[in-house]
């Protein structure tokens, strides 16, 4: 297992959890970055009395310092494990997914957040379900489990069950899939996760379309149904396929943006810097 380099991320919302962490949380607390002074009578915490502010107060009130609380969240990786995820074009898709999830787990650990893995095909895969945990070294386990997992089956119904496995509080859900499913199904999945902050990671391999030959007979086998199709490739057809794939990605962009977050397009291998930039942009 490679060493999973953690990458930073930040949220555009203030988590409300009780657990102290690295993210600016909602409400005020006794530690963190200074926020404001309030009268002792409003917040009776004499440990935080600010002597200088009290002396400066024209009304003679005793002032107490209030701080912005920092909270921890749960980062959940929801991984689509349907048959199409077993595709290997320029890169092995599951290797990319394993690396991505290990990175997310390492990052969550470094940020003090909990990490949760939910693998699903037509249902939630229990062998790839990892409840929210703080445990050190969880990234190694995540990597090993995903690398040995066999993506199979044609269903993606499990994605709709992800919401039931998540904590009730708002989480950062990284939805990793190639999203080769009907648009209405994607809408249903996204609507089921309304409570959470969902970052869709759209996997795309240029071996799917761009690497196809310009001329010749190509037999393609659907990874989910096993159906074969003989195709007489020609430049016009290849351009048409690329055009349709691009149009689909555009439709996905619009769908996810309408639900608050731009998807991260993971083309071929994992580009950590691009992912970090996307995460920092929020």
């Amino acid at each position: 297992m490679m060493a999973a380099e953690p990458i930073p991320y930040r949220l555009r919302w203030r988590p409300a959890g009780e657990r102290a962490g690295a993210h600016p949380g909602s409400g005020e607390g006794g530690e963190g970055a200074f926020r404001r002074h309030v009268p002792l009578l409003r917040h009776p915490d004499p440990r935080r009395v600010d002597v200088r502010e009290t002396a400066r107060n024209p009304m003679g009130e005793v002032m107490v310092r209030r701080y912005s609380r920092r909270a921890a969240i749960t980062v959940a990786a929801a991984v689509d494990l349907s048959g199409s995820m077993g595709f290997a074009g320029r890169v092995d898709r599951m290797a990319v997914v394993s690396e991505l999830c290990a990175t997310l787990a390492a990052s969550a650990g470094r940020m003090g957040d909990r990490f949760c893995l939910i693998g699903c095909d037509s249902t939630v895969r229990e062998d790839l379900f990892l409840p929210p945990t703080h445990r050190r070294g969880v990234e190694a386990e995540v990597y090993d489990r995903l690398m040995t997992a066999q993506p199979r089956g044609a269903g993606t119904d499990g994605l709709a069950l992800v919401a039931g496995r998540l904590p009730a509080q708002r989480c950062l859900v990284v939805l990793i899939s190639d999203f080769l499913l009907p648009m209405e199904r994607i809408v249903a999945v996204m609507d089921g996760l309304w409570r959470h902050d969902v970052l869709p990671v759209v996997l795309h391999d240029r071996g799917e379309d761009e690497d196809l030959p310009a001329f010749g007979l190509v037999t393609l086998r659907d990874a989910e149904t096993g159906r074969r199709r003989l195709t007489l490739m020609r430049p016009a057809l290849r351009a048409e396929w690329s055009r349709r794939a691009a149009a689909r990605r555009g439709a996905l962009d619009r769908l996810f943006l309408a639900r608050g977050r731009a998807p991260f397009h993971l083309v071929d291998g994992l580009d950590r810097d691009a992912l970090a930039g996307h995460l920092l942009a929020g």
Partner: peptide, 17 residues
């Protein structure tokens, strides 16, 4: 020999093929 493809349902059927 068939090469894997993630999903052929997204690929338009080509009459010539």
């Amino acid at each position: 020999a068939a090469a894997d493809h993630p999903s052929l349902t997204e690929v338009p059927p080509d009459r010539v093929s």
